[in-house]
């Protein structure tokens, strides 16, 4: 694992930003040119949303990966977080501009349709995280920055829930996403802390 961490340390953060950002214009281009099928608005909206959830699961996995496997990817946490927010924003923009289109209906949808209410709440919780994801904010906010970043936990639950309650019928995939989020959050709870301490005690 030590070797692995050394290799990972050599990967520049900008490479993660670049690779993570590429699907955004690529999917849009695919949507324009027929590569996303005959309902490209729906397809683009869903693909951006799924990418956001996948990146979010990636962010949440970083701490447990280090704690339980010793794999250190924390260097890429901000990049993955910023990319998550980017895809959430793109997902929201496709919904607003290409999908709903009617401004008067947007507010009605946010208030009346639970899956949209939940999705918008998740976006609202992520806004302050995105705004403060820079070194200046980290310095200025001090310890408060860490507490603020914990907003990602409720945001993640709401994001997973958003997908589960928009699905028609009893579908497996949204439940897989929500379960992954819940499990990753549970791995951070005190009980897992006890486990780690026990393990550390064993190894000394």
């Amino acid at each position: 694992m030590q070797q692995m961490n050394q290799i990972l340390r050599r990967i520049p953060v900008w490479a993660v930003y670049l690779i993570g950002a590429l699907p955004a214009p690529w999917l849009f281009y695919q949507g324009l040119t027929g590569g996303l099928g005959v309902n490209p608005i729906e397809a683009l909206e869903h693909r951006y949303g799924e990418l956001a959830l996948q990146l979010l699961i990636g962010v949440l996995a970083l701490s447990p990966l280090r704690r339980f496997l010793g794999l250190n990817l924390l260097k890429f946490r901000r990049a993955l977080g910023v990319l998550t927010f980017t895809y959430v924003t793109l997902h929201l923009l496709v919904w607003l501009v290409l999908d709903v289109q009617v401004p008067s209906q947007i507010w009605a949808d946010i208030v009346k349709r639970p899956y949209i209410t939940v999705g918008m709440a998740a976006f609202a919780l992520m806004l302050p995280l995105a705004v403060t994801s820079n070194n200046l904010s980290v310095r200025k906010l001090g310890p408060r920055w860490r507490s603020l970043q914990r907003l990602v936990f409720p945001a993640a639950i709401l994001g997973g829930l958003h997908y589960v309650i928009l699905a028609k019928g009893f579908q497996v995939e949204p439940l897989v996403y929500l379960s992954a989020i819940v499990v990753l959050l549970m791995l951070r709870m005190p009980i897992s802390g006890v486990l780690t301490r026990t393990r550390q005690a064993d190894s000394t």
């Binding site: 949507g31 324009l32 005959v38 309902n39 490209p40 290409l98 289109q101 009605a108 349709r113």
Partner: peptide
């Protein structure tokens, strides 16, 4: 529908900028 409006629809075939 409890989860979305049925007042308008999107015609398949209108591409990425299809109007409702």
């Amino acid at each position: 529908h409890p989860r979305w409006s049925q007042a308008s629809e999107r015609e398949i075939g209108g591409g990425l900028f299809a109007k409702r």
